[in-house]
Amino acid sequence: MSNFFNFILRRFLLTIIAVFGVIILVFLLTRLLPNNPAALRAGPLADAELIKQYEREMGLDKPLIVQFGTYTGQLMRGDLGDSWRTSQPVREELGIRIPATLELALSAFIIALFFGVPLGIIAAFYSDSWIDQIVRVFATLGASLALFWLALVGVYIFYYLLHWAAAPVGRLTIGINEPPEITGLFLIDSLLAGDIETFKDAFNHLWLPACTLAFIVSAPIIKISRSSMKDVLNADYIRTAKAIGVPPTKLLFKDGLLNAFIPILTMLGIVFGYLMGGNLIVEQVFAWPGIGQYAWKALSTNDFNAVQSFVLLIAVVYVSLNFIIDLIYALINPQIRLE
C-alpha cells in the first residue's frame, strides 16, 4: 500500500509544481512581452500621464519579483483582481459563468465519449477492413474541421434551413425563466424543478453546440481508442483468453477495454481540458454565456487581467484533471496499487 501512497504523493507534488509553473508563465506573459499592460488598458488614445497613473495603480513600477510576490499573494487568497472593463472582481464574473460552460463541455464530453470509444473499438476489432478505413477517414476529417466553420454549418442547416435547433443566442429563449439554481446545469435543474417546458427549451439550445464540440473532440478519442485497443488485441494475454475459449464480446469488453482504458483515459483528460477552453469559439458562435464568451469580450477590449485569469483557470483545470486521471490510473493498475 505504501507504494500507492508514494505514487499519489509524488503526483500531487508534481501537480503543485506544475500549477506554480503555470502561474509563473501566465505572469511572465503579461510582464515580459513588449506590450505594456498599462498602455493596453489605457487604450490607443491615452496620454503618457494616464499610462503612468495606471502603471502605479497596477504596481508595474515596482521590481518584477515584488510584483510576482503581490500577484501570487493575491492568488493564494483566491483574488484574481478586478476586470478592467467592468471593474468587477474577475473571480465572481468567472464564477457565475462557469455552470454554463460546464453544462456545454460536459454534454459534449459525454456525447463524444459514447460515440468515439465504441467507434474506435469497432475499428480496432475489424482492423484493416472497410469499416476501419471509414472510421479512420472520419476521425481524420474530425481532426481537420475548423470548429467555428462547423458551428456555422450546423447553425445554417439545423436552425436556418430545418428549424430543428433554437436560435443560436444563449441558453434559453428570452421570456423563459431560468430554473432555480441547484447544480447550475439547466437541463438538470429544470428536471429537478419538474419544469418540462424549460427543459425542452434548454435542450433545444444545448444540443447543437454540444454536438458541434463533440464532433471535433471525438476525433482524438476515436484515434486513441482504436490504436490502444489494437495494441491490446495483439497482446499475448488476449491470445491466452482466446485459447481458453472466451467469447469475442467478453474478450473485447472485459479483457480488452479494461487494458485499453488507461491510454484512453489520458486522452479523455486532454479532451476535457480542451473542451473547457476550446469552447471559446463555440460559445462565441452560439452566444453562450460561459467563461469562453467572457474571455472573448475581455480579449476584444484588451481587458488583460480577465484574459490572464481565464488562461490561468483553464491551465489549472487541466493540471488538476491530469492529477485525477493519475489517481484513477493508480486504482486500476495493480502494479501501482500493490506491493
Binding site: D236, Y237, R239, A243, N259, N333
Partner: peptide, 14 residues
C-alpha cells in the same frame, strides 16, 4: 489447450 512462451505476458495484467 495451449500454453505459450513468455508466460508473464500471456496473463492479463489487470
Amino acid at each position: 489447450a495451449m500454453i505459450f512462451q513468455n508466460p508473464r505476458m500471456a496473463l492479463n495484467p489487470l
